[in-house]
């Protein structure tokens, strides 16, 4: 699914790199714990998180992830947005809960792919 469709489904606000919204994303990982996210060693996921710090962007950068959706209305600082922009990571935010975001995207065909141990 394209990032533009994801943004539309979630009624999410795109915070940077609107020009990258035609990227296809087949899968997702959702967690507030970056330690758990770092176990997913594949780059074709969107990161769904309520953790809104520089480490969220750094985690996406290390994993080559292309986009982050901040849930529960979390709003990143300008520093976080700049860092994402610099590293080619699309940022979005939505007022929806993580549970709702996961449910809505799953219903539209996005899945969790491989589990932690394959």
């Amino acid at each position: 699914m394209k990032l533009s469709q994801i943004a539309e489904i979630l009624n999410a606000q795109v915070l940077c790199l609107e020009e990258n919204l035609d990227i296809e994303i087949p899968a997702a990982v959702a967690s507030d714990m970056m330690s758990d996210v770092l176990v997913c060693n594949d780059s074709d996921r969107i990161l769904i998180s309520g953790l809104c710090t520089v480490h969220t962007v750094l985690t996406a950068q290390i994993l080559d992830l292309r986009a982050i959706i901040f849930v529960r209305g979390k709003t990143p600082t300008d520093e976080i947005i700049e860092s994402a922009q610099l590293n080619d990571i699309v940022l979005m935010r939505t007022e929806k809960s993580m549970f709702d975001v996961c449910g809505m995207l799953y219903a539209h065909g996005i899945d969790g792919r491989r589990n932690l141990n394959g």
Binding site: M33, M34, S35, V39, S49
Partner: peptide, 18 residues
Amino acid sequence: VRMLGFGAGMGMPNMKRC
């Protein structure tokens, strides 16, 4: 540390896995 998103107890096993 956990509030900052770390300390899930996955660090060392993940280093070994990678």
